[in-house]
Amino acid sequence: MKTIRTVVIEDEAVTARNLIHLLGEIAHDIDVVSTLSSVEEAINWFTANESTYDLIFMDIRLADGLSFDIFKQINIDKPVIFVTAYNDYAIAAFKNNGIDYILKPFDEEEIANAVNKYKRWIGSVEPQVLPVFADLLAQIGNRSKSYKKSFLIHYRDKLIPVETAKISWFYTANEIVYVRTMDDRQYVMDFTIEQLEQQLEPDSFFRANRQFIINRQAITEVEFYFNGRLLVKVKPIAETQILISKARVPEFKRWMNT
Rank of each mutant, 00 (worst) to 15 (best):
M1K: 15
I9Q: 07
E10C: 00
D11E: 03
N18W: 12
L19S: 01
I20W: 07
I20C: 11
L22C: 11
G24H: 14
A27Y: 03
D29R: 15
D29P: 09
I30Q: 06
V32Q: 06
V33P: 03
L36M: 13
S37H: 04
S38W: 08
V39Y: 05
A42E: 02
I43V: 11
I43C: 05
N44I: 14
T47S: 13
T47R: 02
E50Q: 06
T52F: 04
T52R: 08
Y53E: 11
D54P: 05
L55F: 10
I56P: 01
F57I: 06
M58C: 12
M58A: 11
D59Y: 03
R61F: 07
R61S: 14
L62R: 01
L62G: 01
L62D: 05
A63P: 00
G65Q: 07
I70Q: 04
F71C: 01
K72V: 08
N75V: 15
N75L: 11
P79C: 05
V80D: 05
F82Q: 01
V83H: 14
V83N: 09
A85N: 09
D88F: 07
A93Q: 03
N96W: 12
D100C: 07
L103V: 05
P105H: 02
E109M: 13
A112L: 14
N116T: 13
Y118L: 04
Y118R: 01
R120T: 10
I122P: 12
S124D: 14
V125H: 09
L130W: 13
V132D: 10
F133D: 13
D135P: 03
D135A: 13
L136F: 10
I140M: 05
S144K: 15
S144C: 11
K145L: 10
K145V: 06
K145W: 09
Y147M: 10
L152R: 10
I153T: 04
I153A: 00
H154R: 11
K158I: 09
I160V: 15
P161I: 14
V162Y: 01
V162T: 06
V162W: 00
E163T: 04
T164L: 03
A165K: 14
S168E: 02
W169N: 03
F170L: 08
T172H: 01
E175G: 00
Y178V: 10
V179P: 00
V179Q: 00
M182A: 13
D184Q: 07
Y187M: 04
V188R: 02
F191M: 09
E194W: 00
Q198V: 15
E201L: 05
P202D: 04
F205T: 02
F205A: 02
F205Q: 00
F206S: 06
F206L: 11
R210S: 14
F212C: 10
I214C: 09
N215S: 15
R216Q: 06
Q217C: 07
A218E: 04
I219K: 11
T220C: 12
E223Q: 14
F226H: 09
G228T: 15
G228C: 15
V232F: 05
K235E: 12
K235F: 08
P236E: 13
I237T: 13
E239T: 10
T240F: 02
T240I: 13
I242E: 15
S245H: 04
K246Y: 04
V249R: 08
V249S: 12
V249F: 00
P250F: 12
K253Q: 09
K253P: 12
W255T: 06
M256N: 10
T258S: 12
